[in-house]
């Protein structure tokens, strides 16, 4: 039985679907959803146990029911007021502490979060767990108890790599398509109890979690750099606009 732990983040739907009529307040980060779908596909042919690990407010629990309905075996939510305001460093610390208490062969992450987008967490986790992070994985070809063969696609180079487990890995893609969740599976998933762990359950050094443990903070904000001068504005005079654009481009043409 191979233990796969998927680190997921739940984000506000309004960040992903900016203008649309959204239905659920929270949703799974599209990069993590993609990773979950890939991992569930693996489960069809390889005997494995999939655990979703998430750090967040307790109210996001509802969004995690979807993971269970899709086929994950266990869901663990790390939720504590102390975790709030965490930057990447503090997030990695809490996730790593939780992972150290679990059996894992592979830790899978989505490439990055849509509301943060640093893509640093998988590497930070790998450093804390003292293993390598394989990024930009497009496919897991072979999965065994002690090793895995993956295909990595970075820019235009495709590599087939064999790694000894455990490792951390990230897929490269995201999906904006809502998965089709069988309603009966959803009904069953609603009965499942998500395991909620607080700071005290994790043997944490409270100096390293949440805002207290963060190394950085946003201290100010500025308006973006707008042009200082008023733009030259043309309206409805199609011929004049085309002629102007030609003048500007011609000067710089190849």
């Amino acid at each position: 039985m191979i233990n796969i732990i998927l680190c997921v983040k739940v984000v506000l739907s309004s960040i992903v679907y900016k203008n649309n009529n959204i239905v659920d307040k929270y949703m799974l980060n599209p990069f993590d959803l993609y990773a979950l779908e890939q991992v569930l596909e693996i489960k069809r042919t390889t005997e494995c146990k999939i655990t979703c690990l998430c750090m967040g407010k307790e109210e996001i629990k509802e969004a995690l029911v979807q993971c269970k309905a899709m086929g994950a075996d266990d869901i663990i939510l790390l939720s504590d007021k102390k975790f709030a305001g965490a930057d990447t460093y503090a997030t990695v610390y809490v996730l790593a502490q939780a992972l150290k208490n679990l059996d894992y062969d592979i830790v899978v992450c989505g490439k990055q979060a849509v509301d943060g987008e640093t893509g640093q967490v998988p590497y930070g986790l790998a450093a804390r767990l003292n293993c390598i992070c394989m990024g930009a994985i497009s496919e897991i070809e072979v999965l065994e108890k002690n090793r895995v063969i993956v295909t990595q696609q970075k820019d235009n180079i495709k590599r087939k790599l064999a790694c000894k487990l455990p490792i951390v890995m990230t897929y490269d893609d995201c999906t904006l398509k809502s998965p089709t969740i069988n309603l009966m599976a959803l009904k069953r998933a609603e009965k499942y109890q998500v395991t909620i762990l607080k700071a005290q359950d994790l043997n944490l050094d409270t100096d390293k979690v949440g805002q207290q443990g963060s190394k950085t903070e946003v201290y100010s904000s500025t308006k973006p750099e707008y042009r200082k001068a008023e733009p030259i504005l043309l309206q409805d005079e199609m011929e004049e606009m085309i002629s102007k654009i030609y003048d500007i481009l011609r000067i710089r043409k190849g």
Binding site: V23, D24, E62, V65, K177, S178, T180, I181, L183, L186, K187, E190
Partner: peptide, 19 residues
């Protein structure tokens, strides 16, 4: 109920995506 709300949301999301 919470379950009915979830059922409703799931069906709306599914319909918009696939139908």
């Amino acid at each position: 109920t919470k379950e009915q709300q979830r059922l409703k949301n799931e069906i709306i999301k599914f319909s918009r995506e696939h139908l």
